[in-house]
């Protein structure tokens, strides 16, 4: 199913900002809020994983219901997860389309990755000293 991806600040994401490699941030930024009727149409229950894809990339998130959203729009808190599918194109403004990206969403049996795993996939290395 096609959706518009909206990303933004949440208070929990803000709270974990100084510890982005921790569990709290990993949990918050891998959430995908969807209207309950859209969940129904996707045929999944709240708490199940979904695969979000577009030409830029793909990412596994957990689906959560939010009646405050309009149908056809999903909301994902800022973070490395949503940025896997955000295009760097700014249309000459310097600003990517963080709030209006077309994505395809489907149920998946794959697991969510933590930010550390996503970074390691990119070639990142954590500092073990602390």
């Amino acid at each position: 199913m096609k959706f518009i991806l909206n990303t933004g600040r949440t208070i929990r994401q803000g709270k974990f900002t100084e510890n982005k490699l921790g569990q709290g941030y990993a949990e918050e930024t891998s959430r995908c809020y969807i209207h309950p009727l859209d969940l129904l149409e996707l045929g999944i229950e709240e708490g199940e994983n979904i695969m979000v894809t577009n030409v830029t990339g793909e990412v596994v998130l957990v689906a959560l219901a939010d009646e405050g959203l309009p149908k056809g729009m999903v909301f994902v808190p800022y973070g490395i997860h949503c940025n896997s599918v955000i295009s760097p194109c700014t249309h000459g403004t310097g600003m990517p389309d963080y709030k209006i990206h077309e994505v395809e969403i489907a149920p998946t049996s794959e697991d969510r990755k933590t930010p550390t795993e996503l970074l390691e996939q990119l070639g990142g290395v954590r500092y073990a000293g602390n």
Binding site: E18, Y78, N83, I86, P88, P96, P115, G124
Partner: peptide, 27 residues
Amino acid sequence: PAAHFPRACVEQLRDIPLVVIDPFETM
């Protein structure tokens, strides 16, 4: 920026010399 930039930009940051001035270990 590794947390907030589109992935393609993060890949470029990974590929070049990168200095971070920050109190914490970040992404």
